[in-house]
């Protein structure tokens, strides 16, 4: 227990927690995006999947619990590391520090993460609890999605958030391999391309749905 605590107290330990929880969330997102695309099969596919999930009984709640813990740990570590970062350079550069090689994805990892958190809350209120949904029907996700993107502001918000998810994933997936020390040095690092491909696929998979609904391609 002491060792686990010591690990959590170290900066590398916190990053490792972010990497592990990140990987859990990425795995979840991959199933999530695949399932979402069932929407294009009409009501039967996605509603059947939803019934299947709810029919698993405890398993759904275990999954939700795991995800909740992952999200909480991910955010806690992120907040603490951000505080460390602030403390590490109390006085900045007058001329500004000029980034040389860092990617947009890495530089937006914090604000992007915060945006994703705001989105996540909205998303749960929107499609899980239905509180901010105009015509929410419990147990009919097809209907909820098909009617959930009539407001262009909602669509824009979803698109911005999905772009943030894509960027977050790109840097997160690539760096987690290094944070956990599993990436082996290579002159042609494959993981960057793998992370990029995953980030782009997840982004596109999610981003296409609100647009398709808004364009009337998913009839209510």
């Amino acid at each position: 227990m002491n060792r686990a605590l010591a690990l959590w107290h170290s900066s590398i330990g916190k990053h490792a927690v972010m990497a592990v929880t990140g990987v859990i969330m990425v795995l979840y997102l991959i199933t999530h995006v695949v399932a979402n695309l069932l929407i294009f099969q009409g009501p039967s596919g996605i509603n059947a999947y939803s019934r299947f999930l709810h029919g698993t009984g405890g398993a759904l709640w275990i999954a939700r619990l795991v995800l909740l813990v992952a999200v909480v740990l991910h955010i806690m570590a992120a907040v603490q590391l951000t505080n460390r970062r602030r403390a590490a350079r109390p006085v900045g550069y007058a001329a500004g520090r000029q980034p040389q090689v860092s990617t947009l994805a890495s530089r937006t990892i914090r604000w992007g993460g915060a945006l994703i958190l705001v989105f996540l809350i909205y998303h749960i209120l929107h499609f899980t609890l239905g509180t901010v949904h105009a015509s929410f029907v419990e147990g009919d996700p097809y209907h909820n999605v098909a009617t959930g993107f009539r407001n262009p502001l909602v669509v824009v918000f979803y698109e911005i958030a999905m772009a943030a998810v894509g960027l977050h994933l790109y840097h997160g997936i690539w760096s987690s391999g290094r944070t956990l020390g599993v990436s082996t040095p290579s002159p042609r690092p494959l993981r960057r391309q793998l992370a990029l491909a995953l980030g782009v696929l997840v982004w596109l998979g999610f981003a296409v749905i609100p647009l398709a609904v808004f364009a009337g391609m998913v009839p209510a």
Binding site: H15, A87, S102, S106, I109, H171, S175, R178, T179
Partner: peptide, 10 residues
């Protein structure tokens, strides 16, 4: 009091 590594590569 150094910060952690986010692998920016800078």
């Amino acid at each position: 009091g150094f910060g952690g590594c986010t692998l920016y590569g800078e």
